Simulated assay, not measured.
Amino acid sequence: MKQKIQKGVLIPNKRATFDYELLDTYTAGLVLVGTEIKSLRLGKASLVDAYCYFHNGELWLKNANISEYFYGSYNNHVARRDRKLLLNRKELRKLLDYVQTPGVTIIPTKIFINERGLAKIVIAPARGKKLYDKRASLREKDDRREMDRAMKR
């Protein structure tokens, strides 16, 4: 049962832009163990309930699900463990300033593998949307879809 490895793996968080208003974006490195990178290359990950938090001056990713590797045997990783994010001090300070304002959290928006084969994650400080904001987003999306359909005809 050989699985196909995707080129340019991109795992988006589809709920991020729907539930949150993104304020800024940062690209961070991801500290992974052996079989996690293999699962990522197969596209077996989910960021739906994930968020980032500070602990001892370091930024950590919580609730990101990277599925166990099929061929991992006893060396397999835990699917929902906390993972450390790699950023420089200046970026960490800016993110800490964002988080200290009420109502702002840090969420992951996508995971990708760069041209050097390293796993990277795009994170964004975000403010939660209200219900009426979500309705407006859905309405804009439907309007865009209708305009695209009209242009194709």
Rank of each mutant, 00 (worst) to 15 (best):
W60S: 01
L61T: 03
L61Y: 04
L61D: 03
K62V: 10
K62N: 13
K62Y: 13
K62L: 09
K62I: 09
N63E: 15
N63G: 06
A64G: 09
A64L: 05
I66C: 09
I66D: 09
S67G: 05
S67C: 03
S67R: 05
E68P: 05
E68H: 05
Y69A: 06
Y69W: 12
F70V: 00
F70W: 03
F70K: 02
F70H: 01
Y71M: 03
G72H: 07
S73Q: 04
S73T: 02
S73A: 04
Y74K: 12
N75M: 12
N75K: 12
N75I: 09
N75S: 11
N75Q: 13
H77G: 06
H77T: 09
V78Q: 14
A79G: 00
R80V: 06
R80E: 04
R81I: 10
D82L: 12
D82M: 15
R83Q: 06
R83V: 02
R83E: 02
K84P: 03
K84F: 07
K84G: 05
L85A: 07
L86Q: 15
L86Y: 10
L86W: 10
L87Q: 05
L87V: 06
N88P: 09
R89P: 14
K90H: 13
K90M: 11
K90I: 13
K90E: 15
L92M: 05
R93A: 10
R93E: 11
R93Q: 11
R93V: 03
K94N: 14
K94S: 14
L95C: 04
L95T: 05
L96Y: 14
L96V: 06
D97I: 10
Y98K: 05
Y98N: 04
Y98I: 05
Q100A: 10
T101G: 04
T101C: 07
P102I: 12
G103K: 11
T105Y: 02
T105F: 03
T105C: 07
T105L: 07
I106V: 11
I107M: 02
I107C: 01
P108I: 08
P108T: 08
T109I: 12
T109E: 04
K110W: 02
K110R: 11
K110P: 00
K110Q: 10
I111A: 00
I111R: 02
I111G: 01
F112H: 04
I113M: 01
N114K: 00
N114C: 00
N114S: 00
E115D: 06
E115V: 00
E115I: 00
G117S: 00
A119W: 01
A119H: 01
A119F: 01
K120S: 01
V122C: 00
I123K: 08
A124K: 04
G128D: 08
K130I: 08
K130H: 13
L131Q: 15
Y132I: 13
D133M: 07
D133N: 11
K134Q: 11
K134N: 07
R135M: 13
R135K: 13
R135V: 13
A136V: 06
A136H: 07
A136Q: 10
A136S: 06
S137D: 12
S137I: 15
L138C: 10
R139V: 14
R139N: 12
R139D: 12
R139P: 08
E140G: 09
E140M: 11
